[in-house]
Computed example of a mutant assay.
Amino acid sequence: MKPHLLLIDALNLIRRIYAVDANQTHHSEEHMLKASCARVAHACKKLLQSTNATHAIAVFDGDKSWRYHFYKQYKHTREPMPDTLKNALHNFKQAIEQTGIVVFEPINDEADDIIATLADKAAKNKINSTIVSTDKGFLPFLNDYICVYDYFKKCYLDNNSIEQRFGIEQSKLIDFWALAGDKTNDVPGVKGIGTKSAQLIVNTYENIDKAIEDDALSSSIQKKLVEQKDMYVISKQLVTLRTDIQLGFSLKQLRLH
């Protein structure tokens, strides 16, 4: 059997399943958490089967990644995790581990950077991997060896879905987010550049320097690009997932038994 690496964005999966269960009627909080843990374990088992994974890992977020230090406003408006869920995370980790999947919680790094690093390393070794997440940040990594699966919509994301959702090609995603910003993560982008302007720029020009040099482009857009180029650079770094995280373990340690 060819090796296949299953990469689960753990909190992405858990928080969505928990949100559904928390809104249901249960006998008690304890009963609700047990049901939620069972659903997460069931999801993991289904993913193992559907992907024919030979190796698997569920990655959690570390405490504070480099992005929080690099840009103080990063995710500052995001709702904190409910205390009930936060205090029960160890139960979810145990539920995942019981399916045979390795659970990894870095000290500081974000799960996204860990997963991107693993997928990139696997691809360079011609090993296929499936990333399970609804996070759009993984979309720039789609290639012949890396696929992204939305467990809740039960579909694999592809270039067509990217173009339908964002109106641009996959290769333009990073520049698009750097220009338009990302409200879900409080990434600023270029103030005054909305979705349509960002689409126009990335679909027309090779890079923003080319846009700034073109007199055919609106002078107001050019002015914003010139005056806020530093925010574009900062935003681009924030939305770019790293692939150089030192992991401290090898693919062999993720083999399923």
Results as ranks from 00 to 15, higher is better:
Val132His: 02
Thr195Ala: 13
Lys183Pro: 00
Asp186Leu: 04
Ser36Met: 11
Glu30Gln: 11
Thr134Met: 01
Asp186Pro: 01
His257Leu: 06
Tyr151Ser: 00
Val40Trp: 02
Leu11Ala: 03
Ser218Pro: 02
Tyr149Asp: 04
Phe104Val: 05
Val59Gly: 03
Ala178Phe: 00
Ala216Arg: 15
Ser171Pro: 01
Phe92Leu: 09
Ile96Pro: 05
Pro140Leu: 04
Ser36Ala: 15
Glu206Gln: 15
Lys196Gly: 03
Lys64Trp: 09
Ala211Tyr: 00
Ser235Tyr: 05
Asn143Ile: 08
His55Ser: 04
Lys172Asp: 14
His42Ser: 13
Tyr149Gln: 08
Tyr232Gln: 10
Glu79Cys: 02
Asp175Gln: 09
Glu110Val: 09
Thr84Ala: 15
Ser65Ala: 14
His4Ala: 11
Thr117Asp: 03
Glu30Gly: 14
Asp150Met: 10
Phe138His: 04
Ile14Met: 09
Ser220Lys: 15
Ile162Leu: 02
Arg67Ser: 07
Cys37Lys: 04
Asn125Ala: 14
Lys223Ile: 07
Leu47Gln: 14
Asn52Gly: 15
Gln94Arg: 15
Val190Arg: 07
Asp61Lys: 06
Ala95Met: 05
Lys154Ser: 14
Leu217Asn: 09
Trp177Gly: 04
Ala178Pro: 04
Ala122Gly: 05
Asp63Thr: 11
Leu254Cys: 10
His257Asn: 15
Ile127Glu: 13
Pro3Asp: 14
Ser133Lys: 09
Gly167Leu: 08
Lys34Ala: 05
Asn160Tyr: 01
Leu157Lys: 11
Ala119Phe: 01
Gln253Tyr: 02
Pro3Lys: 14
Val202Cys: 05
Ser65Asp: 11
Phe60Leu: 08
Cys37Leu: 01
Leu157Cys: 01
Cys37Val: 02
His27Ile: 10
Ile212Pro: 03
Val40Leu: 12
Gln24Trp: 03
Leu48Thr: 02
Leu157Ile: 13
Asn207Gly: 08
His26Tyr: 15
Leu11Arg: 03
Glu169Lys: 12
Ser250Asn: 11
Ile114Ala: 07
Phe60His: 01
